[in-house]
Write a protein that binds this DNA or RNA. Structure first.
Length: 446
DNA sequence: TGAAATGTTGGGGCG
DNA sequence: ACGCCCCAACATTTC
């Protein structure tokens, strides 16, 4: 009567439907995480994400140990390892929470194979409030525009409250690989350590702190110099907190008047995560291919020197350099600045959005299979409900508008105002005109 | 979840 | 006092 719970992007013990099902079933529970960089449809984690994962697994190991459980970690192809560990554990049931990208084919194959060998297998809804196939237009097709999508979701309603964490489980000790996912030589993770505490307990603390200190001023969230965003994205990406827990706390928990006034706006940002996941479900190659195919005709003009200047935060445009340096140092960038830096790369520098998407994938601790390419395509104009291509940010005006006192820019670019701060690598007026000229091809091939 | 170009309006200076 | 012009300020259109 042993169950195996296979964890992926759900590294938590509270509100974990697969773990909950195993607890309800009774008997010993083996908990497995597989670091799988090899199965088809898997996109290997970037460096910053691997750093986060390392600490997240440590945290999970402690949380499980505190209630009697054990965490087994293995490295390799999940399709081989999950059945093998099920055998080692003597499990007759395997539970997991569903994924929604290309790797779900791995899961489907496993479900069939495990059932054929006589095991009970069940998958659960753990990381999305609304599963992609349940949100459709009147015609039964997926939504392409956020606002009607989110309205349809709200009409459906969130169908369950979070599950409590189990208070005690009987773990199954199994041999475990030792994963060291931390960077060495050089150790570039100093800024990440200063900035973040991965893990389920820290996720809960972060949510509470956001509700106390951020949500009431959430109408100022577009200002990167003011710390009012939730910063929950990496916790959500690794499933250290679930959207059900966020929903429950914000929609039904105690809030100040000001926080209550901003609750719907914040939850709609959670809605964008749902929207991108739905787009990914229907377009599993989202990070490789234009959602709007007419953008295949766009003639990108990548230039290695420009790309390097952008990556290193040496474009000579203060708000852009600030953002790229925040990213490099902390594994994170304020959302408004993500839009500004992305716009410069794609529109002023005419670099294919996939180049920027890959850089963010490698450097963000919250790099998400759906949100990262979804948002890059949003900026590029090639995505679902995207910003029109001709909507080109002027990064200097954006900086005036959203960092009017320069607090954010000076924080990350301290040499501002000193003579050795470089000139801009691109003429904003001329490159804007050139971008619009390039866009003509896309318009014609529509 | 823009920006720039172009158009319109109206107050005030001034002949 | 009047008309003309200038030009912010705002609105609309275009990309």
């Amino acid at each position: 009567m042993t169950s195996l719970v296979w964890l992926r992007d759900d590294l938590r013990i509270a509100d974990n439907p697969a773990l909950h099902a195993a607890v309800e079933r009774g008997g010993p529970i083996a908990v497995l995480y597989v670091l799988d960089d090899v199965s088809p449809g898997i996109r290997p984690l970037g460096g910053a994400s691997r750093w986060w994962l390392h600490h997240s697994l440590e945290s999970l190991r402690e949380s499980l140990a505190a209630i009697g459980g054990r965490l087994t970690v293995r490295e390799g192809a999940a399709g081989d390892i999950v059945p093998a560990v099920a055998r080692e554990a003597g499990a007759d049931a395997v539970f997991w929470n569903r994924r929604y990208g290309a790797s779900r084919e791995v899961d489907a194959g496993l479900k069939t194979a495990l059932r054929e060998s006589g095991l009970e297998v069940a998958s659960f809804q753990g990381s999305l409030l609304f599963e992609p196939w349940t949100v459709t237009t009147g015609e039964g097709s997926p939504y392409k525009v956020f606002t009607p999508f989110w309205k349809a979701c709200l009409d459906l309603g969130v169908h369950r409250a979070p599950f409590d964490a189990p208070t005690t489980i009987e773990g199954v000790p199994l041999p475990s690989d030792t994963l060291d996912l931390l960077p060495t030589d050089p150790d570039w993770a100093g800024g990440l350590r200063e900035t973040w505490t991965p893990g389920e307990n820290a996720a809960r603390d972060r949510l509470e702190q956001f509700i106390d200190d951020g949500l009431g001023d959430y109408d100022k969230r577009d200002q990167p110099g003011i710390d009012v965003t939730s910063r929950l994205s990496p916790y959500l990406k690794f499933g250290e907190i679930s959207p059900f827990q966020i929903w429950e706390r914000v929609e039904h928990g105690r809030l100040s008047g000001a926080a209550r006034a901003n609750a719907a706006k914040f939850l709609s940002e959670v809605g964008w995560r749902e929207f991108n996941a739905t787009i990914l479900f229907h377009n599993t190659d989202l990070h490789e291919r234009n959602y709007r195919r007419e953008f295949d005709a766009f003639a990108w003009e990548p230039d290695d020197e420009n790309i390097r200047a952008w990556q290193k935060g040496r474009t000579g445009i203060p708000i852009v350099d600030a953002g790229m340096r925040e990213l490099w140092h902390t594994g994170y960038m304020h959302n408004r600045v993500r839009m500004i830096t992305a716009s410069l790369l794609v529109k002023n520098l005419l670099v294919d959005w996939r180049v920027g998407e890959q850089w963010f994938w490698d450097t963000l601790v919250d790099a998400d299979e759906a949100s990262n390419p979804g948002n890059w395509q949003w900026v590029a104009g090639s995505g679902a409900d995207a910003a029109p291509y001709f909507r080109i940010f002027n990064p200097l005006l954006q900086a005036d508008k959203f960092d009017p006192h320069g607090d954010y820019q000076r924080r990350w670019v301290p040499e501002l105002g000193i003579p050795d701060y470089p000139d801009a690598i691109v003429d904003l007026k001329a490159s804007r005109a050139e971008a619009l000229a390039h866009y003509e091809v896309v318009k014609r091939s529509k």
